[in-house]
Amino acid sequence: MDITVNILLTIATAATPLLIAAIGELVVERSGVLNLGVEGMMIMGAVGGFGAGYLTGSPWIGLLAAIAMGALFSLLFAVMTLSLATNQVATGLSLTLLGLGLSGMMGTSFVGQPGERLPNLYIPGVTEIPVVGKLLFGQDPIFYISIALTAAVMWFLFKTRTGLTLRSIGDSHASAHALGIHVIRYRYLSVIFGGACAGLAGGHLSLVYTPQWVENMTAGRGWIALALVVFASWRPWRVLAGAYIFGAVWIGQLHAQAFGIPVPSQMLSSLPYLATVVVLVLISRNKRLTMMNTPASLGQPFVPDR
């Protein structure tokens, strides 16, 4: 029983960064912007979170720094693609490349240093309840944020007027503009929200998952988060499900390596990436369904004319 609980806990820990980054990107893409810089914003959040936590000794300040770092970094993307109408694919790629380089440079002095870890929730008496106690009341704070965030985004996108406006911009920025909606402003806020989420996801890696700084520690999670959004057909609850499936794959291969299964460890390590490809193939096979689900203005630059 204890082993099951522990495995479930590690799956949740592996799924949380994927979930947060993907939920953020989902909002961005719903507004019609494709930001391929998730990996870069995530690694910036990781280095910023670790650095602030390490320097101040407070993982909570680290958490805030991670969010701020992701948001700030995404602003760069927003200015380029929204104000200067650059190609979103290329700009997102360059955001990732710049983030990987910049984080490596900023983190040189952090390598090998012990980091601060965010403490798990602990409610005396409640957390000790067998099985459910630890699962529901004994996880790290970002886990709870991730669940709350998913619920909040679901509510926002589908139950509020602003959410409806945001989705309409994603489907047709020209019509939204004609209705007097400030397309660029909405998109700026969406991109920054996505950046804050990616930063938080990176902070989870360096403040909870493995509280240390390792170069390229995101290991493609930002890209997997992007794939998750496609997999989820731009629906928040499916992102949640997808993140946990991928968390399970990630943890499963680690456990398999630990058990010494007679398969090369590299093959197991490549499973999450291969699974991403397979899942993408399965989900996008139906061309009409994909077209129906994809925000229609996704990736197209918008320059308002008067």
């Binding site: 650059t86 290329a90 790629l93 360059s94 710049l98 380089g101 490596g104 440079m105």
Partner: peptide
């Protein structure tokens, strides 16, 4: 750190895309 090379490369791409506007 020799990561400075990556930073230069990333910045260069950013500015190229921006100037293309």
């Amino acid at each position: 750190s020799d990561k400075v090379a990556r930073v230069f490369q990333g910045m260069l791409l950013f500015f190229v895309l921006g100037c293309d506007t």
